[in-house]
Structure formats: structure tokens, C-alpha cells
């Protein structure tokens, strides 16, 4: 389990501060991190992945202090997919996915038969088997995201931290992507996903963490977090709070007039 307690972080020459009392990611659950721009979602995820050291607070992974663990040890347990995905060189999909085995290999990173089988599994899981010989430059935005996700999955992590993984995808690709996350959670992987799309977060996540200006505004099941009062506080009277016809989970729609909330 990944656990963060009493986290405080500030950037130099900025009055903005991230201040989170408690945040954890447990195996088998999908947790959505939502909030307006600049609320600290990505910063929280980077601290969780050990990419950024907080000014104060504790980050522990299975009871061990994260900053005392070596990077390959962290990478065997935490898979992190950053928001900006690019490659200086035009690797093939298979080459990229093979790179995910880095924390399990030594020296020149030569893969054994087990590693290769895991790479094939990751390709199959993300539906990239037929595209494995393609170069990254030959992929669509969605395919590229899936290729990077497959690379992270081949690390065989217990915790997956994803920063806006579905942001460039069209609607049906987003649905497929979030269904993939649910499948991963079924396989006992803990997922924390930063997303701007509150409806997807509400429908596909077990728990939500709502941030605003670096502070946790609400945390818990979607029904509790996306309450009328909280939504009104963040979005004013510009959105309509409804219920998903299949699941009854809260959904947001733009309001035609500013009377309905």
C-alpha cells in the first residue's frame, strides 16, 4: 500500500501550497484525483511516485519510507505514467514496452524468456499486439498513450499512478481506457488516476480525492465527494448535477441557466 501523510509542498517563489493530511492507494481499487487546473493533482501524483520530494510529510510504500528506497525497487512496485509523453527517438512499440522491464534486469538490460512473456502480456492487455512493430511516430495519440501504459504495465507494478492518461482520447477510447483500469484493479493493482473528466472519475473510480488550491476538499466514494454543496462551491451554478442512468452515480452536465445546480 502507498500512503502519504501530512504532505506539504511549495514551489520556489510561489505562494501556492499543497497541503494533504492523508492519501493512500490500496491494491484492487481505482482512485480518481480530480479538481480544477492548478489544484495540485499532478504534484500530488509526482510526490506519490517519488519523482518529487515534499517539503514535509511522510510517503511510505508497504511501510518503508519511499525516499530511502532505490529507484529500481520503487519501480518494481509503482508504475508511473507522466502527463507529458514524448520520445527523443522513434522507438518501436515493442522496444518501448520492453524498456518497462528495466527494474527487473541488470547491466545491459538483456531480457530472459519470463521478461519477454510479460512484455507480450502487456502488449496483449493494451491491445497493441498488431502494432508492436510500428514506430511511435506512426501511432495516433490514443495508441501512443496505450503504448506507454503497456511499458509501465510490463514493470508488473502493484500500484499504478497515471497523470491524465485519457486526456487526448476521443470518447470511446476514453471508455476503453477506463475499462482497462477497472480490469487492472480486478487483478489486485491499486490505481490512482488524475483526470479532468469528473464524469469518468465518478463512473469508473471507487474513491475520489477532490483538490482545490492545494487542499483536499473532499475524499471518499463518488456519491459523497460529488455532493451538491461541493459542486456548487467549485463550479458555482454553471453545472447541473444528475445521476447516471445505469449506475446512479453522480454526473455533471453544463447548466443552461445559472438557476439550476
Amino acid at each position: 500500500m502507498l500512503e502519504l501523510r501530512n504532505i506539504i509542498h511549495r514551489f520556489p517563489e510561489s505562494s501556492w501550497e499543497l497541503n494533504i493530511d492523508r492519501f493512500s492507494v490500496s491494491p484492487g481499487e481505482v482512485q480518481g484525483i480530480i479538481g480544477p487546473n492548478g489544484s495540485g493533482k499532478s504534484t500530488l501524483l509526482r510526490i506519490s511516485a517519488g519523482i518529487l520530494d515534499p517539503l514535509a510529510g511522510d510517503v511510505t510504500l508497504s511501510g518503508n519510507e519511499l525516499k530511502k528506497l532505490k529507484r529500481p525497487i520503487i519501480a518494481r512496485q509503482i508504475g508511473y505514467l507522466p502527463q507529458e509523453l514524448s520520445s527523443e527517438y522513434d522507438f518501436s512499440v515493442e522496444e518501448l514496452v520492453r524498456m518497462g522491464r528495466y527494474p527487473h534486469t541488470k547491466g545491459l538490460g538483456i531480457l530472459n524468456s519470463t521478461d519477454i512473456a510479460i512484455v507480450q502480456q502487456s502488449l496483449a492487455f493494451t491491445g497493441l499486439e498488431n502494432l508492436k512493430k510500428r514506430r511511435l511516430s506512426q501511432l495516433s495519440g490514443g495508441e501512443k498513450k496505450r503504448a506507454f501504459l503497456a511499458s509501465v504495465l510490463s514493470q508488473k507494478p502493484e500500484i499504478l499512478l497515471l497523470d491524465e492518461p485519457a486526456s487526448a482520447l476521443d470518447l470511446h477510447r476514453q471508455v476503453h481506457f477506463f475499462r482497462l483500469l477497472r480490469k487492472l484493479a480486478k487483478g489486485k493493482i491499486g490505481v490512482a488516476v488524475v483526470t479532468h473528466d469528473i464524469n469518468f472519475a465518478s463512473l469508473f473510480c471507487d474513491k475520489l480525492l477532490l483538490l482545490e488550491e492545494g487542499l483536499c476538499l473532499a475524499q471518499g466514494p463518488p456519491e459523497k465527494v460529488l455532493s451538491r454543496g461541493v459542486i456548487q462551491k467549485i463550479y458555482g451554478k454553471d453545472v447541473f448535477l444528475g445521476k447516471h442512468p445505469e449506475t446512479g452515480r453522480p454526473t455533471l452536465l453544463p447548466a443552461l441557466t445559472d438557476k439550476k445546480t
Binding site: A49, I51, I73, E84, S87, P103, F148
Partner: peptide, 14 residues
Amino acid sequence: ALGEEMALGHGVPV
């Protein structure tokens, strides 16, 4: 070559 954050995520001591 994949970026510093991606490399750290893969476990590279960048």
C-alpha cells in the same frame, strides 16, 4: 530519451 520523469518511473537513477 523518453524524458526524465518516464525514466524515473521505469526505475532509472536519473
